[in-house]
Design a binder for these strands. Structure first.
Length: 667
DNA sequence: AGAGTGGGCCTTTTT
DNA sequence: GGCCCACTCT
């Protein structure tokens, strides 16, 4: 059945019959109203969302009246591109992106209602931490009560509070009991932090959402305007939304009530960020007339892999029961690989990758997925030693690396001369200037209408000790030259050539690599016309590394190393999961409560369902920790619980490591 | 006084 | 390995 529609003078043809199975088609062609699409891993969730969008457009819905909320900007981009191919329409007309991205867009135009000028600056996590640190020292919190939370932790506490819409007291009791006694000083620090942000027009990630919701709640006219505008609201990865986000969605859908949410409760893995699966499980209680669609046919994995996934997740109590059904025929059984220790584990991974290559696999076919970044350390060393090319997704996000943040800080000063954090950062880079002198310079220029000009005033250097004066003069000249250039790419080139390149050479052994990084940023920045557009995108998304890989001139192939969290939504023919030991996966930090353990099991579920053909689960039996103590590890309970109690066929094939590996080195 | 440097502590997941 | 603190050098 091919239905043809006339749209914008162009005939579009989509074969809804061929491209979709019955389950998918029901979801795609559903009428308006609230709809919950429960989409198991690999069941074509993205396809359903894109075809749903295409269907709506084909029905005559105007693209600019559709809102698509996704978990990453990349996901939005990919879906919208696909929709454009299916149903040609004006590019960029559909609003799509992460909650933070859309919030930024909304607040740049309507923010004045909640006290934000359109020029506000977005703080990333490190900036927020720096500012919190300043607040702690300003309040002179009595640190003799030793364990006062670090700025990072303070940020996490503040974030958890707003994202779950709870009181500070409650958050401390439930998640940070060790700090419960410090509620008052913590509260004082957070209050000061909030005041400082507002006074300087600074907005952290959470503020984007908080202020968006406040805008909708306190300004009925704005809410009416936005709710009227978005005739259809679609939310991806609904299982990972938090209270704040769900409230925003609810407000936006008040007028038309055409709200489609898609997700998989078995893949809810962001509770540490305030997300709550129950939001999805209890969707119907908020929208009693919800239409439900289920996608349970898995197109990705072999039946053997799915059996592991199904058996494992069945141990969870908080879930919407479902069973992934294979569309593929039988393949290899997933393998359990016991290793003597984590060195042998790394060697196995390296050698097995070489073995897979011999069998005709490509490096791109293979991924190593782990629970925490540091689990990959020895593996990286081993792969490097054997010249196996690999890429590490995440870890330090690209834009969070020190050298990238340094040059971005210069651009931030050019965009907003009153950006204190950027000034402090840049000033502290200068020889003979540390935190104290940086503060002194900032105090001198902060009140000036144009701090960049003020910094070049000849008299200013007099406030510094003689040794520090030349570096300040040089910085002033640099900034003055930079702001003469209007677009961000040129500014970056200027900064790199005139100053930062030398700085790198003098300071880092891998200066060439860092220089390349900055050049990559410059190339990325070339698509932006103004520094502001560039800087806010960079602040909200670290979603850039993928781009360099694809657009890079060298078509190099590599194995992927990534945390499970960052692997979500991706797939590989061969997946290796190291550290399948209790205390690692599940991590011992999340084995306290049933809820935590169930979340860990969902992380495992995500990991397993990334694999298409082959899955290897590795357990090192001994771990030598940083104190060189040798610690015995037990196989993960996620593996032992897979074994049928009364002697059925085991789900895993034990794969013993054959000799040929170098002898285990001691110490 | 404040910048630079070496030693001890610990390791979740991220828009 | 990364981060904070205490110590030493200018």
């Amino acid at each position: 059945m091919v239905r043809t529609f006339k749209l914008g003078g162009r005939r579009v043809a989509v074969d809804w019959e061929r491209d979709l199975n019955d389950e998918q088609r029901a979801a795609v062609m559903a009428p308006g109203g609230p709809m919950l699409i429960i989409a198991g891993a690999g069941s074509g969730k993205t396809r359903v969302l894109t075809y749903r969008l295409a269907w709506l457009l084909a029905q005559g819905v105007r693209p600019d009246r559709v809102l698509l909320m996704t978990f990453t900007n990349r996901a939005a981009r990919e879906m919208l591109q696909r929709v454009e191919q299916l149903v040609p329409h004006e590019s960029g007309a559909i609003w799509g992106g992460t909650f933070h991205h859309i919030a930024n867009r909304v607040l740049r135009t309507h923010g004045t209602h909640v006290g934000l000028s359109s020029e506000f600056t977005i703080l990333d996590r490190e900036d927020a931490g720096d500012l919190l640190g300043v607040c702690v020292s300003e309040l002179k919190v009595p640190i003799e009560r030793r364990r006062f939370p670090r700025p990072r932790v303070l940020g996490a506490i503040a974030s958890f509070r707003v994202n779950t819409a709870q009181t500070l007291e409650r958050v401390l009791e439930e998640r940070y009991p060790m700090f419960a006694a410090l509620r008052e000083p913590i509260d004082a620090v957070l209050t000061l932090y909030h005041q400082r942000k507002r006074r300087q027009q600074l907005v952290d990630y959470d503020d984007l959402l908080v202020e968006w919701l406040r805008l909708l709640d306190e300004h009925p006219a704005v809410r009416a305007q936005l709710a009227e505008r978005f005739e259809h609201v679609l939310v991806d990865e609904y299982q990972d939304t938090n209270t704040l986000q769900r409230r925003i969605v609810d407000r936006l859908a008040t007028r038309h009530r055409n709200l489609s949410v898609v997700g998989d409760d078995a893949q809810a893995i962001y509770s540490f960020r305030g997300a709550d699966v129950r939001g999805m499980i209890e969707f119907r209680s908020r929208y009693p007339d919800t239409r439900e669609a289920r996608l349970e046919v898995n197109y990705r994995s072999t039946p053997e892999i799915l059996e592991v996934a199904n058996t494992s997740i069945a141990h969870n109590r908080t879930r919407l029961p479902k069973q992934l059904r294979p569309s593929r025929t039988g393949g290899l059984r997933p393998a359990f690989v016991p290793c003597a220790d984590h060195f042998e584990q790394s060697r196995f991974i390296a050698e097995y990758i070489l073995h897979l290559l011999d069998q005709g696999r490509d490096l791109f076919d293979i991924a190593v997925l782990y629970r925490s970044h540091w689990h990959a350390m020895e593996i990286q060393l081993e792969l490097t030693a054997r010249d196996i090319p690999f890429t590490v997704r995440g870890g330090l996000r690209f834009f969070e690396q020190m050298h990238i943040k340094d040059v971005l800080a210069m651009l931030r000063i050019g965009h907003n001369g009153h950006d204190e954090l950027a000034w402090q950062r840049v000033l502290r880079l200068l020889p003979r200037i540390g935190g104290r002198l940086a503060q002194r310079v900032w105090d001198a220029i902060a009140g000036q209408p144009d701090p960049v000009t003020a910094a070049s005033a000849p008299m200013l250097a007099a406030i510094l000790p003689p040794a520090a004066r030349p570096s300040l003069r040089r910085l002033a000249r640099l900034l003055a030259g930079m702001v003469e250039r209007a677009d961000p790419a040129e500014q970056l080139t200027f900064v790199l050539e005139e100053y930062y390149g030398d700085h790198l050479d003098a300071r880092y052994p891998n200066a060439a690599q860092r220089r390349q990084d900055i050049e990559a940023v410059r190339d990325f920045a070339a698509q932006y016309k103004t520094p502001e557009a560039f800087l806010s995108d960079v602040a909200i998304t670290g979603d850039f590394t993928g781009e360099t890989c694809e657009d890079g001139p060298d078509e190099q192939h590599f194995v992927t190393l990534t945390t499970v969290h960052q692997a979500k939504g991706l797939e590989w023919p061969v997946v290796l999961i190291p550290w399948m030991a209790d205390g690692r996966f599940p991590t011992d930090l999340a084995m306290g409560t049933t809820a935590e353990l169930e979340e860990e099991r969902r992380v495992f579920h995500v990991a397993v369902t990334r694999a298409k053909d082959e899955l290897y689960l590795l357990v090192p039996h001994v771990w030598s920790n940083y104190r060189r103590q040798r610690i015995l590890m037990k196989p993960s309970r996620f593996l032992t619980e897979l074994t049928p109690p009364n002697g059925g066929t085991p789900l895993l094939e034990t794969m013993l490591i054959e000799s040929g590996l170098p002898a285990v080195t001691s110490g």
